[in-house]
Simulated assay, not measured.
Amino acid sequence: MADFRVMVAPNGARRDKQHHAALPITVEEVVETAARCHAAGAGALHLHVRDDAGRHSLDAGRYREALAALAQAVPGMAVQITTESAGVYGPQDQLHCLEELRPPWASVSVREMARDPGVAARAYAISAEAGTRVQHILYGPSCIQQLRAWYKDGTVPSGMREAIFVLGQYAPPVLAEPDHLAGFLSATADLDLAWTACAFGRNERACLLAAIAAGGDARIGFENNLETPDGALLQDNAASVAALVNAAQTAGHCLKEG
């Protein structure tokens, strides 16, 4: 049996309340959701912020506001910001966010950063200088190949070994399946990664249970999935977290904090 951690990704960049009334948009809603998810067993939060119109934002000021509110309301919960482009931002914008904010923890898409290798090198260097933990977003073989090359040429510091494996995809929709995990594990076996998995669609919980059993951590939430395994709408993010934690503990796995 395995020890595991849970991160919640409660909103993402694309969905809004038309998709689910309980999807948090404002800082106040994110904070309330974070507190409930922390109580349900999520030790960390994957943070997206929105602009005044509810659109995806990488604004450092908005991040500072959200990080301060979360630190006050849920001091025991680790927070990871996203640098996701979501089709809105380019690598230079993503670099600017990292430079301005210098966050404790950030997720960075290898595929997106590879659009500008020079900016990528600067982004990883800034993160190393600031002490930012970087979690590399890996969508498939080409991302893994790029990350391996960047370790080899020094673009990515050798100590940055956190990654998230993305099973399935949002658009065009590809339903995640537990057997998708095997390809990531075999392709990264030589990289000594501390890895997490997330999964798109109603098989999310089954995929994450497979990841936990294989020695990984789990990221769950409305960014990736709104449905129960039988296709009904989940009540909210906290219910999703609680159901995963319960299923993993029933299978004999042990929840770790942080």
Rank of each mutant, 00 (worst) to 15 (best):
T196C: 12
Q135Y: 07
D179E: 15
R205D: 04
G159I: 11
W195M: 09
Q169P: 02
R161S: 01
P157M: 09
M160H: 04
W150F: 10
D192A: 15
G140H: 13
H136D: 00
D153C: 05
N203Q: 11
F184D: 00
Y151S: 02
H180D: 13
T155Y: 03
S142N: 11
L185N: 01
V174S: 09
D153V: 09
I144C: 05
L181N: 10
G168A: 02
A197C: 15
I144H: 01
A187E: 08
L208Y: 03
W195F: 10
Y170D: 07
V156G: 02
F184R: 10
L175I: 12
D153E: 07
D190M: 12
C143S: 15
L185D: 00
L181K: 12
W150M: 02
N203H: 12
T132L: 11
H136F: 02
C198S: 10
V134E: 09
R148H: 04
L175Y: 06
D179L: 13
D179V: 14
T132P: 11
L167N: 04
D192I: 11
R133Q: 11
E162A: 14
P172V: 04
R161Q: 07
Y170A: 07
I164A: 07
V166F: 13
A163Y: 03
W150C: 05
A199E: 04
P172S: 03
V166I: 15
V174E: 10
F165M: 13
E204L: 06
A189H: 12
T155E: 00
Q146N: 10
W195Q: 01
Q145A: 14
A194L: 14
